[in-house]
Structure formats: structure tokens, C-alpha cells
Design a protein around this nucleic acid. Structure first.
Length: 304
DNA sequence: CTCCAGGTGGCGA
DNA sequence: TCGCCACATGGA
């Protein structure tokens, strides 16, 4: 009865976990992960078993969808190169409780907007912003459970955010008007096709090009672009470097570059450094496990 | 009160 | 290129 999938991985609001209408092979599925019992077991690499006690979660091909969503095609023991354990035995020991932590293949737009809310503030505030965006601009979905009703909200569509007024939207972004404006502009670029999703989703697109395309939007720098690529485009080679990653690169891997301030130039240097001891194709996947390990085991932070 | 939190963009030297 | 600074709020 072991559950080998750890879903604490992202998102700030948990909207993707809580409620999401998913179109899959022309059928519509709802997923309510944290509020309604959903049993997900990984039987082997690429094989998953899903049991749900909710009529919202039903339909054929359910396991197939969740296998994709929970990236069970990425074997837990394939994330780090073989040399890692020998080179960094202390880190490996700490990491042992994090190998089941999965990155999810999440919705692109929700990921983009959520990470645009994640600049220089704490996790609590980031979640609050995304929840407010959903509640203010998303569609309400009432889920009736036996004990109570849950008010849930879809993440708003690009069109809905594109039409939003900066002043009213800024109430959802810590009253930060710049951020509100950037979100509206980004939503417009998705809605009108300026940001070409088909081009972004091309797996052959080099990471640097992908990053530069995303950075055309005001409010998106290297870090946010890498987060969008990693969590919203399934680009597990993207390695976002934030304040925590910078810290563990210095402490765990002895990077002197990580002691400098995080300018675009140092960002690219750290990115290149990390690929020397991480599996380059899964650098962000491994980096995410290191990220949570660092926050919990070293920084002793409660929230993830 | 001070410092930091899953950053970005504008500014002057 | 590099170091500051504003942006805004809240928890430790």
C-alpha cells in the first residue's frame, strides 16, 4: 500500500490540485486532489493506479491521464546521475526522503500567472494572490460533500484576465499595480497569440530560446521563465534559480558564484555549473527535490 | 524594529 | 556589468 508519489511539489494556490476541469480525449474530468480522497499508487515506472471517492473523478483513461499529470514516466531513481551519490554523500543522505517528490505537468497559463505572483515574497502571500485571482476571475464550482459544501474556483482563462481592470486586479496582487498590469499584459499576449503556445511547446525548442520568448513579457525574468518551462511546459531540463537554490548551491556544492548577487550574468553561470553535477535533461526535476529538501531539512520551513 | 520571503526593472556610475 | 532601489505585505 505504499504511495510513491509525493504531490506537494508546487503550485502556490493548489488550484490545480483542488479543482481543475481537464479536457482529455474529448471527455471532461474533474480532479479534486486535496479535498476529496484520491488514492494514487505508482505500481511501477509508467504505471499508476487511481482510486477516487468522488463522482467528479470518473471516466475511462483516468489512470492514463494521471500517469501523465504526475510524471510517472520519470523514474524516481533516474533523476540524479550515478556519480551524484559518491560526490555528495551528505546531500544524498538528506535527499533520501525526497525522491518520490514529483513535478507535475501543470497548465501553462495558470503556471505562468502564478509564478508572476512569486517575486520576493513569502509562500503564504503567493498562495493568497493566486487564490484571490481564481475567486475573483474564475468560474465558481460548488462541490457537495457529505459533511459540507466546498466553494472551488477554476483558474481564470487568458481572456478573462486580459479584460481585467488593473486597479481591481491589483487587489489580488498585494495591491501591487505593476504586477497587476504585467499579468494583464501577459494574459493579453496569450489571448491574442503573441505568445505562441505551439512554438513554446515544441520539445525541440532550445531552452535558451524558450526562456527568451517568455522573457519578452514584462515581469518575467530568467527565474520565472524557467519555472514556467519546468512546471507549465514539462521542460524538466529547466533549472530555476531562486534565493533558496542560490543558498544550497553555495552551501552544498561549494559554488563561489552563488555568493554573488543574482544578476542575469551570474544566473546563467550558476545554471551552467549545476548541469555539471545534475542530469542535464532533468536538472530542474532534481533541483526541485533539492529545493524542498533544503527548505525543510536545513531551513526548517513548515510550508512547502 | 529588522530581516527575509520561490524577483524584476529602472537608474546612475 | 554592477550595486542600489522601489515594489508591497506579512511572518519570524
Amino acid at each position: 500500500m505504499d504511495i510513491d508519489i509525493d504531490i506537494r511539489s508546487t503550485l502556490f494556490s493548489g488550484q490545480s490540485f483542488l479543482w481543475n476541469i481537464i479536457d482529455y480525449n474529448g471527455e471532461s474530468y474533474g480532479s479534486v486532489i486535496n479535498s476529496v480522497p484520491v488514492m494514487i499508487r505508482q505500481l511501477s515506472v509508467g504505471e499508476i493506479e487511481v482510486t477516487a471517492e468522488s463522482n467528479l473523478i470518473s471516466g475511462r483513461n483516468l489512470s492514463e491521464f494521471f500517469s501523465h499529470y504526475f510524471t510517472v514516466d520519470i523514474a524516481n531513481n533516474s533523476v540524479f546521475p550515478n556519480s551524484f551519490q559518491d560526490l555528495y554523500p551528505e546531500v544524498w543522505e538528506l535527499l533520501s526522503g525526497y525522491f518520490s517528490l514529483k513535478i507535475l505537468r501543470q497548465d501553462f497559463f495558470e503556471t505562468m500567472i502564478s509564478f508572476m505572483c512569486a517575486q520576493g515574497i513569502g509562500m503564504h502571500l503567493i498562495r493568497k494572490q493566486v487564490s484571490m485571482l481564481a475567486k475573483t476571475y474564475g468560474e465558481q464550482r460548488v462541490l457537495s460533500l457529505e459533511e459540507r459544501d466546498l466553494d472551488l474556483y477554476n483558474f481564470p482563462s487568458p481572456c478573462h484576465l486580459a479584460e481585467a481592470d488593473p486597479t481591481s486586479l491589483s487587489r489580488c496582487t498585494n495591491n501591487n499595480r505593476v504586477r497587476a498590469t504585467n499579468i494583464i499584459l501577459a494574459a493579453q499576449s496569450v489571448a491574442d497569440g503573441t505568445l505562441d503556445l505551439n512554438a513554446l511547446r515544441d520539445p525541440q525548442l532550445p531552452l535558451a530560446e524558450l526562456r527568451n520568448m517568455l522573457c519578452q513579457n514584462s515581469g518575467i525574468g530568467y527565474k520565472i521563465a524557467d519555472c514556467i518551462a519546468l512546471f507549465g511546459l514539462g521542460r524538466f531540463d529547466a533549472f530555476p534559480i531562486d534565493t533558496h537554490v542560490k543558498q544550497y548551491l553555495a552551501k552544498w556544492f561549494g559554488s563561489s558564484v552563488a555568493l554573488r548577487s543574482l544578476s542575469p550574468a551570474t544566473y546563467l553561470m550558476l545554471d551552467a555549473e549545476a548541469r555539471l553535477f545534475l542530469n542535464p535533461d532533468l536538472a530542474g526535476y532534481g533541483g526541485h527535490q533539492l529545493f524542498h529538501c533544503w527548505r525543510k531539512e536545513v531551513k526548517r520551513l513548515r510550508s512547502f
